[in-house]
């Protein structure tokens, strides 16, 4: 008898996993259904994927999403890396700084979205990618910051002392020792920021101008216009991309220190 195991916890655990994955599984299944209706399974088919790839508005949305995700994750990772370097050791006000860095995590997305819309409009910038990029960068900062911070906290400060002892100045110490040791955390932060930006809906929804629709915004409008099998296909693609990236990020996070 395993004394640690409480009764029914295993059953509940498996139910939770089923609950989390069954709906997604059904969605993926329907995306391969040859029939237009959701209930009747007729045959296996990839025609909705073919249609998706040839849909020009989905192509545009996918491009916008990718451009946005790359710039946002790059920008937020650089900012987060600098911040993590500064917040490495305790100083007065560090917890306030960290609370600020993590603010996008706790504030409701809808409030951030409408507030950014007001800012963009009142400053007079046109809606579109140019206003979406800084909004995405700011929103992604905590997602890039947390893995880098975890890595930097676990780092032995003696490494940098050793480098300085061996004639490296501050800059080359950072380049030759600090950055290589932080690299897995930086990559993990980058991928998580990428995924976050890719899936970010409300901010893009309010800030997207004509021609700057992203994939989530496209999917939402398509759902509102009526469910179609193409939505299943493009949703499945988004799921697969996100899951693959998270796995990559996990692998980075577990890399040897």
């Amino acid at each position: 008898m395993n004394l640690r195991r409480m009764p029914f916890t295993r059953e509940i655990g498996w139910l939770v996993l089923a609950f989390l994955y069954l709906p997604v599984f059904i969605l993926v299944l329907y995306s391969f259904n040859g029939n237009r209706t959701a209930t009747v399974w007729t045959e296996f088919s990839v025609k909705w994927y073919a249609r998706t790839f040839h849909n020009p508005s989905i192509q545009v949305a996918a491009w916008n999403s990718i451009i946005l995700a790359i710039t946002a994750s790059f920008g937020s990772t650089v900012l987060a890396l600098l911040a993590a370097m500064a917040a490495r050791h305790f100083f007065k006000g560090r917890s306030a700084v960290e609370a600020t860095l993590n603010a996008p995590l706790i504030l409701p997305e809808i409030v951030i979205a409408v507030a950014t819309l007001i800012l963009v409009v009142s400053v007079g910038v046109e809606l579109g990618l140019m206003s979406m990029i800084p909004a995405h960068v700011a929103f992604c900062i905590p997602f890039a910051y947390l893995p880098i911070r975890a890595r930097i906290q676990g780092m032995d400060a003696g490494m940098e002392e050793a480098a300085m002892d061996l004639y490296c100045n501050r800059f080359s110490t950072f380049r030759r020792v600090t950055l290589p040791l932080l690299w897995p955390g930086v990559l993990a932060g980058f991928t998580l920021a990428f995924v976050t930006s890719l899936d970010l809906f409300l901010v893009s929804f309010f800030l997207a101008g004509p021609g700057s629709t992203t994939l989530p915004v496209y999917i939402y409008s398509a759902i509102k216009a009526g469910i179609s099998p193409e939505i299943n296909a493009i949703s499945t693609i988004m799921l697969v991309v996100s899951i693959a990236l998270v796995m990559v990020s996990f692998a980075f996070g577990r890399m040897r220190r």
Partner: peptide
């Protein structure tokens, strides 16, 4: 012009 042997060695793991 000095070098240190650290208590925890501080060898660069990478």
């Amino acid at each position: 012009p000095v070098n240190t042997v650290f208590q925890s060695y501080s060898l660069f793991p990478h």
